[in-house]
Amino acid sequence: MWRKSSASGPDDNCVEVLLGSCVLVRDSKDSNGLRLSFDLSAWNSFLSPVKRKL
Rank of each mutant, 00 (worst) to 15 (best):
A7Y: 14
P10L: 10
L54Q: 12
D27Q: 01
R35L: 00
L34C: 02
C22A: 14
P49I: 07
D27V: 01
G20Y: 00
N44I: 00
V25G: 02
G33V: 02
A7T: 01
V50Y: 06
D11P: 02
W2H: 04
P49A: 03
S6D: 07
K53P: 01
K51H: 02
L36A: 06
L40D: 11
P49S: 10
V15T: 11
S41L: 02
L54P: 09
D27W: 00
C14M: 09
V23Q: 04
S21K: 14
S31A: 13
N32R: 15
V50H: 04
R52I: 12
L54E: 13
L47F: 03
N13G: 01
S41P: 03
N44E: 02
S37I: 06
K4V: 15
R52L: 14
D39V: 01
S41I: 06
L40W: 09
C22K: 08
N13V: 08
L40S: 10
G9Q: 07
A42W: 02
C22Q: 11
R35M: 09
D12K: 01
K53H: 12
A42M: 07
P49D: 10
S5N: 12
L24N: 00
L54T: 10
L18C: 12
R26N: 06
L24Y: 02
D12G: 11
F46H: 07
V17H: 04
E16T: 10
V15N: 06
G9N: 15
V23S: 05
S37H: 11
L19G: 06
V17P: 05
S37A: 14
V15H: 04
G20V: 01
L24G: 00
M1P: 12
N13K: 08
L40E: 08
